[in-house]
Design a protein around this nucleic acid. Structure first.
Length: 302
RNA sequence: GGUGCCAUAGCUCAGUUGGUAGAGCAACGGACUGAAAAUCCGUGUGUCCCUGGUUCGAUUCCAGGUGGCACCA
């Protein structure tokens, strides 16, 4: 029996949860979340996790399953998601995966090259070097250790250069030797549903949702994790703006305004990524019936 | 009703001694393989309020109109 993974994605605040739940309900299956921030149990309001009622109606995975202290990443997600899918596909022929984390979705569909875990101490050292000596110094070091990748990398992007260096230094081999861009074979078919609407409507949805988050007590939630503000997991829209407010750098009003703006920019970035995906089938978030109909047809054909 | 000031990008405004214009913010486009809600790159998007007049040429000068603000009635 062929197994099917239905992916429901789209920009932040578009209404993925609702469509995913309707779809999972119709297919009588469970939902796997592909959201790099809803995965943290310390974050709820600012990441817009599904409501208790929604979580009760359909079994969800990777919601609040990890801690902000866990040092999570896309590769760990790939491993854990694939293990989970193997189990779920023993029980179901179809599983719904939903979320807006582009790289996490790709990790499930195509896989990520195998590399060693990054040593946090090494990362800190390289960050310090970057800070003290400037981007030139890490650039130069990368040129020595991996001239091949040096030719391709965005030389203005410190995160890319630092990561390549990390791998070179930890393995003694060039980073480029790990980059196969090989798409892993998956034991299931993939159907991608992209949700989108016109931009003005999307901005309205985002602004409204941020206002709801504020009413629901986002400030208090952010205050609670403020001591850990340096963690990557908290370099997150909705939290870092409040941290700036707690630091006395900006007013609360300004923080709220920035959360809205940064959410809009995040949505735009997601759309840029999804748009170039030729496998995406686009729908309006109100058209969940059409989505289900489309999926039904697709599954019957395979 | 009278007088004065203003009208330029989505917003706040600059500017052109007459040769169709530029800042900030917002917005938009793109890259992306173990930080991805991260990180980085790029782009002015415009009936210069309307209608006439002067002029080779008006967003700019003049007149009228419309709208806004202030003050006086």
């Amino acid at each position: 029996m062929t197994k099917h993974l239905i992916i429901i994605t789209g920009p932040t605040a578009i209404g993925k949860t609702r469509v995913a739940i309707k779809t999972a309900y119709f297919l009588n299956t469970e939902i796997v979340s592909a959201d790099s921030r809803q995965i943290y149990r310390e974050l709820s309001i600012g990441t817009a996790v599904p409501s208790a009622a929604e979580l009760n109606s359909i079994k969800h995975h990777f919601i609040h399953s990890h801690s902000i202290h866990d040092n999570y990443n896309a590769s760990r997600y790939e491993t854990e998601a694939m293990e989970l899918l193997e189990k779920l596909f023993k029980k179901y022929n179809t599983v719904v995966l939903t979320g807006g984390s582009m790289l996490y979705i790709d990790a499930v569909c195509k896989g990520i090259d195998i590399m060693p875990d990054v040593d946090p101490e090494l990362r800190q050292n390289l960050k310090t070097k970057l800070n003290d000596e400037g981007i030139e110094s890490v650039r130069f070091q990368l040129k020595q250790l991996d001239p091949e990748y040096y030719k391709q990398v965005d030389l203005k992007n410190p995160a890319r250069i630092v990561h390549a260096l990390e791998i070179c230094l930890m393995t003694g081999k060039p980073y480029s030797s790990f980059r196969t861009s090989f798409n892993k074979k998956r034991p299931f078919s993939v159907t991608k549903i992209g949700l989108d609407c016109n931009r003005a409507e999307l901005h309205q949805r985002i602004n409204r949702r941020v206002d709801e988050m504020i009413e629901a007590g986002l400030e208090k939630e952010a205050r609670g994790v403020y001591p850990f503000k340096h963690l990557n997991s908290l370099n997150t829209v909705g939290y870092r703006e409040f941290f700036a407010h707690f630091n006395g750098e900006i007013s609360k009003e300004k923080a709220v305004e920035l959360i809205k703006r940064n959410s809009r920019r995040y949505a735009r970035k997601q759309l840029t990524w999804f748009r170039k995906d030729a496998e995406m089938n686009w729908f309006h978030p109100q058209d969940s019936e059409k989505v289900i109909e489309f999926i039904q047809n697709k599954i019957e054909k395979i």
